[in-house]
Nucleic acid binder design. Structure first.
Lengths: 251, 251
DNA sequence: ATGGCTGTTGCACACGATGCAACACACTCA
DNA sequence: TGAGTGTGTTGCATCGTGTGCAACAGCCAT
């Protein structure tokens, strides 16, 4: 829409390929040298491009600081919330959002079930890290040594007979989760409650959060809950897309 | 130099702070709404900014991708990274790599401390140039007139009582650093944080980068940190050897 | 309906971006 | 040494394009 800005921005992907001098830039933009010079100067003043000793231009490391700051200020919760609400509207069950922080996995958002029978949980509360679906999703993505170290360090309380019994079983489960891209908790925490969850990923593909739906089996059976898996995964993917700044999928 | 581009680029740091709507952007730029709209539209077309559901703008995926490429194109970083990781494995503290760019010294890589207490820093972020160990190392190597000119031009904020107070003190410190071939920052930036660093040199012997380890004195005392100096220097030398060894003369 | 609040569009005007040509500077040849 | 190339840089007139304005369009409250 704005020619000048349009041209200036076109320089960036060009420089991303590698350093270039003034004339090369001018040529690839299809403008006069002097025009390219002015554009580059402006980019330079803002620290977006950097001029190396041989006078050629390349992208500045400062650009990275900008992106980094933006990522830090990104609030997953804010972005995810409308998606979670929609998920809840579709299936009616309790929806959770969780993140991994300091050797704990915490619920950071929740949309209550619309059924009268609800599961107990609280935003900010650490989840049962060895059994919860969201915990498995978040930990499955850790680098192998850290994952192993953490697994060794944990306690494995037997909330129910179906709880994860020990580190070996936990690591095996994490491998499965990592492989399949989704996770469940079928009565591992509370005998009567099942969960199914999916990962939310950032630009770099790493899991930054996880969401899940939970329901007591007096309301839906485990099979019926598993049938909702595609819905959960689609929601998680939509949040991932929006979080990483890609165009949202419009039907 | 180019007003339009200048305005457009001024939007980026603004959005890095967090999402903003059209009017907020227009106001902070000091331009009419319609002007801001056109600028944002152009940025949007290039994927630099992204528009979320609530119509507010934030930085977009393309910017993250560009930033990524910007740092990846720094070949020192690629060579140094495994060495930095190894250094971190040996000592456990936060390891930094920094370069001098446009009157600033920027962190371009970082390996986090394995201790729970970490220092805050960010890749791409300019360092406190008058006190940081890596900054002293990089500036100590400048030709004398440039060094003097730069020293005169800088501000000397008193982060702590131990911060470098003025140009004269700074130049004296640089001379010492140049002489001894290593540098420290003992509580000059944050009262409780100490650093020790060493220079990485290219084929011609000039300092092209610097690495350092940083630790809060609740974890190790300054003396204990200084005992790690030989380790840091060996790392820096190893990187130097590898960097200058296979240095292909870039056209 | 009514008002406030936001983003959007069309338009006339003038300002600022543009290309040109001339210049400056560093190299490389004979 | 000097002409000859390849750069980046500057001043300037000209015209294109970015600009602010005002009016409009949605949306959501009351």
């Amino acid at each position: 829409m704005s020619q000048t800005v349009d041209r200036a921005l076109s320089i960036l992907p060009l420089l991303a390929e590698g350093p270039a001098n003034l004339e090369q830039v001018a040529q690839r933009l299809g403008v006069h040298k002097s025009t390219a010079l002015r554009l580059l100067r402006t980019l330079h003043e803002h620290g977006i491009v950097y001029r190396q000793q041989d006078q050629r231009y390349r992208l500045g490391a400062r650009l990275f600081a900008l992106a980094q700051e933006a990522v830090e200020n990104l609030d997953i919760r804010e972005i995810a919330h409308p998606h979670l609400t929609r998920l809840n509207e579709k299936c009616g069950h309790t929806v959770h959002l969780a993140v991994h922080e300091e050797n704990e996995v915490l619920y950071i958002d929740k949309v209550e079930s619309r059924y009268p029978v609800r599961m107990y949980s609280r935003i900010g509360k650490p989840v049962a890290i060895t059994v919860a679906a969201v915990a498995k999703l978040l930990l499955a993505d850790l680098p192998e040594p850290e994952r192993r170290a953490l697994a060794e360090r944990l306690d494995y309380p037997l909330y129910t007979p179906r709880s994860t019994p020990n580190a070996a079983a936990f690591l095996k489960e994490l491998a499965t989760v990592r492989e399949q891209g989704w996770a469940t908790d079928l009565g591992g925490h509370e005998e009567s409650i099942n969960c199914v969850g999916a990962p939310i990923r950032g630009t770099d593909g790493r899991t930054v959060a996880a969401c899940s739906i939970s329901a007591p089996n007096v309301v839906v059976t485990a099979e019926e809950l598993l049938a909702l898996l595609p819905l959960v995964r689609r929601t998680a993917d939509a949040i991932s897309r929006e979080y990483s700044g890609k165009a949202p999928d419009r039907p």
